[in-house]
Design a protein around this nucleic acid. Structure first.
Lengths: 230, 230
DNA sequence: CTCATGTCGATACACTGTATTTGCGCAATA
DNA sequence: TATTGCGCAAATACAGTGTATCGACATGAG
């Protein structure tokens, strides 16, 4: 070996901290989904060996937790909300938009308790908007109910989106989007009610359907907040 | 080799069909969670080589879909429901109970469209209970809203359950269950509203909290069904 | 009896998360 | 200055994964 083909004077191990690791993992997941995130690839993107990461994270699960909390930073609203209803609505909508930017979030949402600093900040802001409006238990139930709704709704929306993408970008028409298998099932006549809904139902875009269900639930919450439980 | 140490006269490859494969996979998942399901282990439990499975399923994802549909068979209610409200409530509760029996279901619920025969039968039964009560779009929104709720709620319940199990079976008290990390965060005073809710909130068991939120949502649905949209 | 066929099992490959061992540069000491 | 120890980065190792490919064998047809 001569001086010419000698490797770079020194790979000079880049400093590397949790933030950079998480950022690399998020980038990888944004590009190729959660399954594209491997410790080797994350490390490679930072010019390091895989084992290097274990100085900053204990396990891959922990990395996922950190990724989720990173996104919670995007979810946290910047200004004070007008009232509790707007606070809950904005929380739901911002979470949805974050999931559309980072589809892998749908795979993780609700999968384990979100206890990172940003997630806690989001909880804090949300609960603050409900403070004093009702007893704590009712308020807690309100937050949890709305949260359950938008997590489920977001998961389904992303799942449908992927399914449509997989079955050749066909329009959101159920029948041909879901492939001939379901069409055949419906044609058997064993699912008359389902068939009726599929045929007579109007196509609505995911965003308004999300918002509509959300308003229903906010109405329900409003009713309970107005009239505290016995 | 003599006649003595010859292997069993013939391993006689067991017939093997989708049902047996799915049953083995479900058993494995019930025992050790989804991550304990590997094609090798499923095949081993059936006395076959891993590659044998590919004659019946195309991919591991498909096996997961079949597992989910298998559980939908348990979810399908046996009798006709009294009314739409009972139908939706029973659907939600039965799904929850199924997830408590098969915790791995929480990891899969909402992750991809459920289109197996049993899932379709459940949809059929549910939609049939709503038939004629409102225009199809409102009814569809009702089913989807309730579905989003219970999927999200079930996911969170199972996630909390696992977290409690992991942090040494401590009681459901937030503070010590969540470990000292969160306790420390709350002590910083940066999350006053959150701290207040944690301290003043009453402990309610998961089942009633699920049911309460569900009733709220059913109330909301009732209001919309009574008064079809403009 | 020979040959074709189709199915089952073994092998192979690329990859995963993580434990363990190795090597090297720097700091402090003699 | 020479040496020793130490801490950290890297390499290697391991047990496992999903799945493609290939080889053998058993069975049915001519």
């Amino acid at each position: 070996m001569t001086v010419w083909d000698r490797p770079e004077p020194s790979p000079r191990p880049a400093p590397l901290d949790r933030e950079r690791i998480v950022a690399a993992a998020v980038a990888l997941a944004d590009e190729g989904g959660l399954e594209a995130v491997s410790l080797r690839k994350v490390a490679a993107r930072l010019g390091a060996g895989p084992m290097r990461l274990y100085g900053y994270i204990a396990t891959k699960e922990e990395l996922f937790d950190l990724m989720v909390d990173e996104v919670y930073a995007e979810i946290l609203p910047e200004g004070r909300p007008g009232d509790w209803r707007e606070a809950l609505r904005v929380l739901a909508e911002r979470t949805r938009l974050a999931a559309l930017r980072h589809e892998w979030l749908a795979d993780l949402l609700g999968g384990r308790p979100a206890l990172g600093p940003n997630a806690l900040a989001v909880s804090e802001a949300t609960l603050a908007a409900l403070d004093g409006l009702a007893d704590v238990d009712t308020a807690m139930r309100a937050v949890e109910t709305v949260g359950a709704y938008y997590i489920g709704a977001i998961r389904r929306e992303i799942a449908n989106l992927r399914a449509e993408r997989a079955t050749g970008l066909s329009e959101s028409d159920w029948q041909r989007a879901r492939g001939p298998h379901v069409t055949g099932m419906l044609a058997t006549g064993r699912f008359p009610a389902l068939a009726k809904f599929v045929h007579e139902g109007t196509e609505v875009d995911a965003g308004t359907s999300f918002a509509t269900g959300l308003e229903w639930i906010l109405d329900a919450v409003a009713a309970k907040l107005a009239r505290p439980p016995a």
